[in-house]
């Protein structure tokens, strides 16, 4: 990718992306540009970018260095890492449940204490995610226990 910077007499900073097609690299650039605002920029299987509000996110998962964002209906891909998502939306209820998982605490239906100090979280879609032994005490602390 060629990166070019131009100094011009414009009233507002401007970013123009030129590409023959929206490939993964361009989607990543777009996502990073959009992520500066509160909404989360993700893309779907058809490579259509979508702006999600953090409240729509059920949980995020990291698989083979890719970050997937799960809503009640769709699965999207995101350019940000789980650590970046946690840093950006942690205050809004995003909680690290394990190395590859970030859960939106506002979209959890129930929590269940499991043997071995783990906690099982059932999200609104009925999917179950495990909060590992390492992160379970942090969740308790986050919930004020």
């Amino acid at each position: 990718m060629k990166i070019m910077m131009e100094h011009a007499q414009v009233q507002e900073n401007e970013v123009v992306l030129r590409c023959p097609a929206l490939d993964e690299e361009m989607l990543w650039v777009l996502s990073v540009l959009h992520s500066g605002i509160q909404r989360l920029c993700v893309w779907d299987e058809q490579r259509c970018t979508v702006l999600l509000s953090p409240g729509e996110v059920m949980y995020c998962e990291s698989v083979e260095e890719r970050t997937y964002v799960y809503t009640s209906q769709e699965v999207y891909q995101c350019a940000l890492s789980l650590a970046e998502l946690e840093g950006r939306y942690g205050q809004l209820g995003f909680f690290r449940a394990g190395k590859p998982t970030l859960i939106n605490l506002h979209r959890i239906r129930t929590l269940e204490s499991r043997p071995g100090g783990r906690i099982e979280a059932t999200v609104e879609t009925g999917e179950k995610l495990v909060v590992s032994r390492h992160y379970a005490p942090l969740l308790r602390e986050r919930l004020g226990m």
Binding site: G93, L105, H106, I108, T110, L111, E112, S113, R114, P115, I119, R140, R142, L143, G144, M145
Partner: peptide, 22 residues
């Protein structure tokens, strides 16, 4: 005691705190 008291009571407390957080 293990499964139905300790864990279930803990789960109840967790859910109570979760609702308060939400």
């Amino acid at each position: 005691f293990g499964f139905h008291v300790a864990l279930k009571q803990d789960s109840r407390q967790l859910n109570k705190q979760l609702r308060a957080f939400q």
